[in-house]
């Protein structure tokens, strides 16, 4: 079986993103070799890809060229991916499971008359279809899904595959874009920093993080007390800051602060992947959660399964008594 797989290559300031190399590795394993991998790079002008052909280790690099791709948009990138898929004959399209993939994958899938397998960590063919391993229930469970027909579309979780070493593309093709700027329904106005918060969570040795399971802002005193007893600061999951229980600056995770304290205490936090990436670097992690299946226990060194409202004050007391 020699099916081709198409991946999206994304430019970064220094070349292409790490995610692009992970996608090429995933595609190479699925296709049975890098020579059967095509990588598409939408460009305003092919000269922008100068040098990139030396570092994109795919069988072929497809530059979809046209002014519509001078800056990336959801529909522009989707059109480029669909065009490259047809040109390459790829039976599977791999996109990153990130804000680019969330924009582009459904538009590509809809045009191919299918749905995308998203948040994927493993892929294989089965007959004339694709089987994907993915996360469901916010990381609590892993699911296997089958896309019964080809071509299939998948978004691949960051870190699920190692990044392939940079190397030259075996061949390069320039494809004139099927869309012009006037065909696009969206336009990128600007990319800017969201603006950093005032509290520096990143400098703290001890972070006690509050989760939605605490039930409401009226129950946060016990978290502040534990943080005080440990000489630490209070942080939070996104569910807590979005609900307004604590300010947004205290949010830890992929869309908040990244912390690596010596001690991290997760209180009634489920441990969704977006939270975990923000605290994985912690030296010692404690989780308090009433659900023994909560993914946070997979990222913790020590856990207590129980009601946080009961357990937290007991821990505070035990810390004070131990001094």
């Amino acid at each position: 079986m020699s099916r081709r797989v198409l991946t999206l290559a994304e430019r970064s300031e220094s070349g292409v993103t790490d995610a692009s190399y992970e996608l090429i590795e995933a595609a190479s394993r699925l296709a049975g070799g890098p020579d059967r991998v095509s990588a598409v790079l939408p460009v305003g002008d092919a000269s922008e890809a100068e040098g990139l052909r030396e570092v994109l280790p795919a069988g072929e690099l497809l530059l979809v060229e046209g002014p519509a791709h001078a800056s990336p948009t959801a529909d522009g990138t989707a059109a480029a991916v669909l065009h490259a898929r047809e040109a390459s004959g790829a039976e599977c399209v791999l996109l990153p499971h990130d804000p680019v993939g969330w924009d582009v994958a459904p538009l590509v899938a809809a045009r191919l008359g299918t749905a995308a397998a998203t948040a994927v960590s493993a892929l294989s063919w089965r007959g004339d279809g694709l089987v994907a391993r993915r996360s469901a229930f916010l990381g609590k469970f892993v699911q296997e899904v089958e896309a019964p027909g080809l071509p299939a579309v998948a978004t691949v979780e960051r870190g699920a595959f190692p990044a392939r070493e940079p190397g030259p593309a075996l061949s390069v093709r320039i494809l004139p874009s099927p869309v012009g700027p006037g065909d696009l329904r969206s336009r990128l106005v600007e990319v800017r920093d969201a603006g950093a918060g005032g509290v520096d969570l990143t400098a703290a040795d001890v972070v006690v993080a509050a989760g939605r399971g605490l039930g409401g802002p009226e129950n946060l005193d016990i978290v502040h007390e534990l943080a005080a007893a440990l000489g630490g600061v209070v942080g939070a999951s996104r569910a807590v800051t979005d609900a307004g229980w604590l300010p947004h600056e205290l949010q830890i995770g992929s869309s908040g602060a990244t912390v690596s304290p010596k001690l991290y205490v997760a209180c009634a936090i489920s441990g969704a992947i977006q939270h975990l990436v923000g605290m994985r670097g912690s030296r010692f992690v404690v989780a308090i959660n009433k659900d023994p299946d909560a993914p946070i226990f997979g990222a913790a060194d020590v856990g207590i399964v129980g009601d946080a409202l009961e357990v937290i004050p007991l821990v505070t007391e035990a810390v004070r008594d131990s001094g």
Binding site: S135, Q143, E144, V145, E146, A147, F297, A300
Partner: peptide
């Protein structure tokens, strides 16, 4: 588009000492 095949608990490499 998609069919469910299986659902299960993730294998946790090193899990917390409960």
């Amino acid at each position: 588009g998609l069919r469910r095949l299986t659902l299960g608990r993730p294998e946790r490499g090193a899990s917390a000492e409960i």
